[in-house]
Every structure is written in C-alpha cells, then in structure tokens.
Computed example of a mutant assay.
Amino acid sequence: TSHTPSGSQLSTALKVASTRLLQILAISTGTYADKLSPKVVQALLDLLCSQLKTLLSQAAGGAAASSPEHQEKTDDCADDQKKDFKALLRKQHTAELHLGDFLVFLRRVVSSKAIQSKMASPKWTEVLLNIAAQKCCSGVPLVGNLRTRLLALHVLEAVLPACESSVEDHQMTQVVDRLFALLSDCMWEAPVAQAKHTVQLKEREQELKLQVRTWPRPREIKTLINP
C-alpha cells in the first residue's frame, strides 16, 4: 500500500531540503567567490544574514516566553500550565541549538578570504554581537546556550580582521566597547543574574507542581457538584 505523507512531514522535508540547498549554495559561493559577480556573492550573504537574524529572533522569543516573569500565575489549568512551561523551555533550548548549528556552518563559510571581506560590515558584527552579548531585562544572556554564544564569537573573530579597511573607526570602537562590556558581564553580572534566574525557574516549577497537586481532579469536581 502506498503511503501519502502528511502536511507536517512535507513541511519538514521542505525545510530540510531548503537548508541543504542554502548550504550547498553558500559553500560553492565561498569557494568560487573570486570568480563570481559581487552582486551574486552579496545576495547570498544577505540571505545568510537574514536567516541568522530569524534564528536569533526565534531563540530570543523562546527566552522571553519561558521567563518566569512572563508566566501567568493563576490556579486555572495548572497541569496545562506546567506542560506549557516545560514545552517553552524545550523550545527555547532547541532554537538555541539550531542557532548554534547555523553558526558552525557560517564558520566554515567565513573561512574564505573573499567572504570575510564581504561580511566585514556593521550588519554582520551587530547580529553576531547580539548573539554573544545581548541581555534580557533580568540580566541573563538573551541566548542562554554557552556553545552558541562562543560560536558567534568565533565567527566574529574571523570577520573582524577584514573590517579594518571597510568599517569606520567609530563603528570599530563600538564593537570593542561591546566586547569589553561582555567581558565585564561574564565576570561580574551574568553569574549573579543567571543564579537568580535559575532559582526563579525552580520556584516556578515547584509552584506549578503544587497547583497540580491541589487542583481538584475531574472526579473530585463531579463529587463537589453532585455530593
């Protein structure tokens, strides 16, 4: 019997195929950048930058949604809230891993000198610094996964030498200032903020567990209605 794939399977297959095609195009462009039209190379890099921003937005959205400050503290549907809370944490973790995997791929693309010179722009340095250094209002990193943040710095390390001739002095000063601010945060502010955030997450999880235990079960509700 023939098996017809579902809509979700087709969507997943299409996403995977699109990602593979983008990777092939990027690697090929990096290899032959010297022989290709500058417009072709720039168009590909614009697409990669757009994809990177999209992945960062997804990771940042998960961070905001899973924050304890954004969780409603009501007694209704406590079991559903607990499941949703854990699902949000998993979704955020997955989004950060996908972002990190894309940065691994970018690190390979940026190994080409021709690509480095094209990526030497404030557009790229800003998004890479946002991944590595941007913080939430609570003080914790916007991207919690350490591997992903380090990968952003690795790509930035490859791009910055090429920025010397194409980026203005004040823009380079801004990059250096943000890197030193990141160093300061990692040494002093981030550990404290992360510890508080971890405690808040545990407290929220315990609170949801208590709500689930104290919330009447369907049979108990029926008994209360019809004693």
Rank of each mutant, 00 (worst) to 15 (best):
R90L: 11
D34Y: 12
D80I: 12
T12V: 04
L103C: 08
S121G: 04
L36D: 07
K135N: 04
S57T: 13
A114F: 04
L183D: 00
Q134I: 04
P38R: 02
K196L: 13
E96A: 07
I24A: 13
G139P: 00
R147K: 14
Q116G: 03
D80Y: 11
R213A: 11
L156F: 07
N130A: 10
V167F: 05
T125H: 02
L97K: 14
V140S: 11
I131S: 03
D80N: 11
A114L: 12
R204M: 08
I115M: 13
R20F: 01
D185N: 04
T74I: 00
D34V: 11
E69K: 15
K91T: 11
E220P: 09
A33R: 06
K202F: 07
L48I: 04
H93G: 03
W215L: 10
L22C: 08
T19P: 05
F180Y: 09
A78Y: 01
S50Y: 14
S166R: 12
A120N: 07
D80V: 13
D76R: 06
P68T: 10
K83S: 12
D80F: 12
L48E: 10
A193R: 02
E69V: 14
S28N: 15
K123T: 15
L99W: 07
C49I: 08
T1D: 09
P122K: 02
C163I: 05
A63Q: 04
Q174L: 07
S111N: 12
N145A: 15
L44K: 12
I24P: 03
K91Q: 10
E168A: 15
Q171Y: 11
K15I: 01
A43I: 01
S11P: 03
A63H: 02
L56R: 09
C137I: 14
V212A: 07
L153G: 02
S184M: 09
A193N: 00
D177H: 05
P68F: 01
P161T: 13
S57Q: 13
R217Q: 06
L208S: 04
H3S: 06
S67P: 05
L160G: 06
V155S: 01
V199Y: 05
Q81A: 00
A43F: 08
R213F: 02
C77S: 13
T125N: 01
T94L: 05
A59H: 07
S18G: 05
E168Y: 10
V175P: 01
L89P: 00
L88S: 06
V143K: 01
R90H: 10
V109F: 00
C163L: 04
A64T: 13
C137H: 13
S111W: 07
K113V: 11
V143Q: 00
P5Y: 06
Q9W: 02
Q92E: 09
T31Y: 10
D80C: 08
V176S: 01
S37R: 03
D101Q: 05
L103S: 03
R108C: 08
S111F: 09
P218G: 02
G144N: 01
V41P: 05
L210R: 06
L22F: 11
P141W: 00
H154S: 15
A195T: 09
A59S: 12
F85G: 02
A132V: 02
P191A: 01
C49W: 10
Q71T: 12
I225F: 09
A87P: 08
W188H: 11
K39C: 07
D169C: 04
G61Q: 09
S165C: 08
S117K: 13
K113A: 11
L21M: 14
E205T: 10
A181S: 06
